[in-house]
Design a protein around this nucleic acid. Structure first.
Lengths: 204, 204, 204, 204
DNA sequence: GATGAATGAGTCTTCATTCAT
DNA sequence: AATGAATGAAGACTCATTCAT
């Protein structure tokens, strides 16, 4: 058995993953058969099993890869020494969410939506998804802390709770933009800003 | 004439739908076979097709029913003459979201998550989901308008945009509570309130 | 159990048979479900089994009835004291074959074709079909004998063999007119007459 | 590259077709389940669909193959430069009809009968059957023309009409020999000859 | 390493028939 | 007699996975 070079092997894996996402984007995880992926990747039925030992494994790898790509785009925004002010921040993050990966075939928002659906009954995907989101919660907590310090938002709430609220906001953005539409980074930023910007003339 | 009464027929349909949700909650839509539902509902293979003419039809009916149950709980909150103040509103809505339907077997949040996953590649479910969410957007828009008038939140943003932001917030709550946890109605309410309550010290 | 009058019972049976042939003509025996017949006959699932105790029984009755109707039209032609001359005879018989029974829904030729298909693997239908054809063979044998005596056809062959040849001719007419077309009573009569009418200028 | 050779593939298809005809001969098309064919062919459930993509496709291929085999036996008889004289011709053709194909499992007559039954409600089979019969009509027309020229039969009728009559004769032979029996190539030839051989004594 | 034909358990669905009312 | 809801044994077909080449 002539062992292939590690580079070559990785290239093969990427080729398969890329085909996988093209298929998943087109018909969803459960309507996509291995045969479709195999055809899309231009390989043979046997070969795919040389790289991923089951459909489940492939699904897992697909999500892992998608999430990682997204993380690489989001982390810089989340970890700036001086975070963007809220509305810019919202716009930048939602822009990433609505952007595409892997030669325009995979929309990140769609990948998340599919991931949540899968996560509910697939523990390993769940781990992946919730691991990622915990990470974002932490990143957001740090951002919130800085915002509070800087006075961008009210200083009184627990940063962790505010971070969850903001994370909710992003996750909900994903849902709305994927399913009903009528929302985009600008709308999202404006809507969010309207909520936080100006002091309500409190009466009570 | 042993023609079944409309009541009896509806009871049968409910019995099937209830079994369906128990199965879907346990293993998801695509891992659940008709046979499982049939066994769970304690009927025979043929009978289920007397009430729903295909698995797709059944899926659709299941979502339709779940969404409607939820709507019946949410609409009163959304249409109060005098809406709850924001943080109470958030708590009440998220409480409903985390509550259960149909004898405690179906968590609404889970139903939504499954619905989103399905909606992406099932046009009829998509219609259902997005129809419902548009309704909520409208309801929230009205609430926002009143909040703005009442001074509960800043008056300057477009109510429709703010409504989208708040809807996002709820949808994201669903995701977080179903997948990662660490969030509940109280946390959500607090986090949200922290965002909007107090004037930031500066304006830029 | 209030026993129904024999007349009423027979009317019911006819109503069912008539519906059966409408269905069979439309979609064939094996694509027609009991439910279709039931709907077409405007009765209930249970009722049909009060009159025919299985689908097989119904099929048998349907053929029996169709064949008998046809026999009633053909026997007078076959048993005339002075038979028609050959070409008239052919035309008359093929006319009957191409005619319709039961309010224009059942074409006799089609009924035969279906009967032959069924007969091959349904012994009782086979009996029915072959019984009928034996009868026609006999009738034709008598006709042939008279034709030979009268000089309408050559006198030398065994009447039974000639009868088989003529029966073949009619059966083949059924096939051609049902499947490929381009043949009708006139064409058939002419073709047949051309075969028998004039002395070939024999050489051998 | 273990891509199967075209020969091997064709052998597989033949093996399946052969099993199919054994099953169809035994129980008819509609009583034969795919499982039966699969077992008879000694393959697995999935494999058959690698070669024929549905039962309908398989039925079509089965008829196509049977008809083609028969055509290959009949065409030489129909296209002889000097056609056989009528009674020899009849005997030769009916001999082919009563012969068997594919290792003695498939009787051609039976295949035709099944084809007619199927053709009535299966447009693709109908096309196959009627296409074949049109071909035979043409072949017979040419034969008739030569017979007329040679004086084997009366010269006055339109060859096309006479051809239809003779085709009827063969088709009817199929029916009689498959369903009632009592007819064989010799009887058929004799019966036919008796019809055409000798001048009737009178003209009207 | 790569191939793709083969596998067979599992899926959804239909349909002749029954039986309580 | 009549009804029609219920039954459950098939039926056609799919698809993740394997293995001889």
């Amino acid at each position: 058995m002539p062992k292939i070079s590690e580079d070559k092997r990785q290239a093969r894996r990427d080729q398969i993953l890329s085909a996988t996402w093209r298929c998943f984007s087109r018909r969803g995880i459960h309507l996509t058969s291995m045969e479709e992926i195999i055809r899309e990747a231009n390989i043979s039925a046997g070969t795919i099993y040389l790289y991923y030992k089951s459909k489940d494994e492939l699904i897992l790898a697909a999500f892992s890869s998608a999430f990682q790509q997204m993380r690489m785009l989001l982390v810089p925004i989340l970890t700036r020494e001086e975070p963007y002010p809220p509305s810019v921040f919202i716009r930048e993050v939602t822009k990433v969410i609505t952007s595409h990966a892997q030669r325009d075939k995979l929309n990140f928002g769609v990948a998340f939506l599919m991931g949540w659906g899968e996560a509910q009954f697939n523990p390993r995907v769940k781990e992946l998804v919730s691991g990622g989101q915990l990470l974002y919660r932490e990143g957001l907590t740090a951002v919130v802390r800085k915002w509070q310090k800087r006075g961008d938002i009210p200083a009184q709430g627990k940063p962790a709770d505010v971070a969850k609220a903001i994370l909710s906001f992003f996750l909900g953005f994903i849902v709305q933009s994927a399913i009903i539409g009528g929302i985009d980074p600008d709308t999202a930023a404006k809507g969010f800003e309207s909520l936080i910007s100006r002091p309500p003339a409190r009466r009570s």
